[in-house]
Amino acid sequence: MTPEPEPGTPTIALRLNIARELGWRVECLDPETGWLWLLERDGRRRVLHGAHASINDHAAAAIALDKDYTARVLAHFGVRVPVSARCLGPEVIFDSLGNDPYPDQRGLAPALALASSHGFPLIVKPNRGSRGRAVIVVEDEEGLARALSEAWKVGRLALAQVPVPGFDLRVDVLDRELLLAYVRRPLALVGDGRSTLIELHERADPRARSPSFAAKLRASAPWIETLRGAELSPDSVLADGRRLDFATTIYNLHHCCVGELVPELPQRWVELANEIAGYIGLRHAGVDLRLPLVDGGDPLDQPVEVATVLEVNASPAVGQIARLGARAEAEAAERRVVSTMLEELGPA
């Protein structure tokens, strides 16, 4: 008997397991990637594409996929968003006569204007994309040009943004109810005088025990640059009490960051996430917020007006936070998502 292909991501695996528990038959339609799955039960069918849930309507999900348009909608309603410039890649979006309808947004110039008014560093990212792919912190014009070139490989529109430092909070909601909330922090390793950086990393982040995940993370710029700056190697032993911080303004669980559940999120933050999802028209959303740090205090004690919305995800994935130790909570959240998605199919 041919073994079933591996799901493409931890979130896909979670959703398939829950579908099986609910009595659905699961079949992979793309064994090479594990991204396309057919679910069937009692004459009903649902095709799953990656970790995309089919709860939101197409128009709302399309807005959320567009980081620039999401920010424009939220700014219209008075929500704080990052200061940004959009930069069209070369030789795209010309009209039928070969004229350029958007010359002021073409190439490097909008990002240079942003740097002139706000200075460096800046963050460059594709307008569409996930998992932190081609998201780069740049310190000068040369780095800005390189980063935009990388972002244009992902999509024809890139964004340059003024960084928003602070406390990073993710809030996932479904139909105005909280699913899950967690904070993301840059990875930090503290030496004990005996363990190598690899060993310390495996203790700080259980995902690092997976060879594939560890290899990907240790090939990332934050890992390489932090070790280089500290004149260390992966086999170096940190002195007892010495702390190594992987400083970054890009908090992404696919890179040098870890996450921790917020067990009791104050209701006003849930209401803010619901409000933001509502502006976009989303029922199911993951809202990324950045809050100012508070000396000696809890950032969550602040009023919601201080928060900046970094992004809104129309199909938030929980696979990484599950692997970081919150499996029961992530499974409970996904059970609600999958149940909603499949129950709305109705009878055959």
Rank of each mutant, 00 (worst) to 15 (best):
G119W: 02
E225P: 01
P165G: 04
L178N: 11
S210L: 12
S210M: 09
R170S: 13
Y102S: 12
T226G: 03
A145N: 02
V237C: 11
F120N: 00
Y102C: 13
P121Y: 01
T196Y: 07
T226P: 02
R242Q: 15
R185W: 02
D240L: 12
G143T: 05
P222Y: 05
I198L: 15
E225M: 06
R131I: 08
R218F: 14
G166K: 05
N127V: 03
T226V: 03
L114C: 09
L238I: 11
L159N: 11
D235F: 04
A158N: 01
R170I: 11
L197S: 02
A219I: 02
L217I: 15
A239R: 15
D100P: 10
L114T: 05
L180V: 05
A160E: 05
A113E: 08
P165C: 04
S116D: 14
E177W: 03
T226Y: 01
L217H: 11
P126T: 07
R170F: 10
R170T: 13
G241C: 04
L179G: 09
P211H: 11
S117D: 00
S116I: 00
R133I: 15
R106T: 03
R128C: 03
D235Y: 04
F213C: 05
S195Q: 09
R209S: 15
P163C: 08
R243P: 01
F120S: 00
K216P: 00
P110M: 11
L238Y: 11
W152G: 10
F213G: 04
K216T: 14
E177R: 15
P101R: 08
S117A: 09
E225G: 01
E231T: 07
L97P: 00
S130W: 13
S236M: 02
R156E: 10
P110I: 10
L187F: 10
L200W: 05
V124D: 01
A239H: 06
P222S: 06
K216C: 06
V162F: 01
L217Y: 08
L108R: 09
E225W: 01
V171T: 12
K216N: 13
Y182T: 06
L97C: 10
R133H: 14
A188F: 09
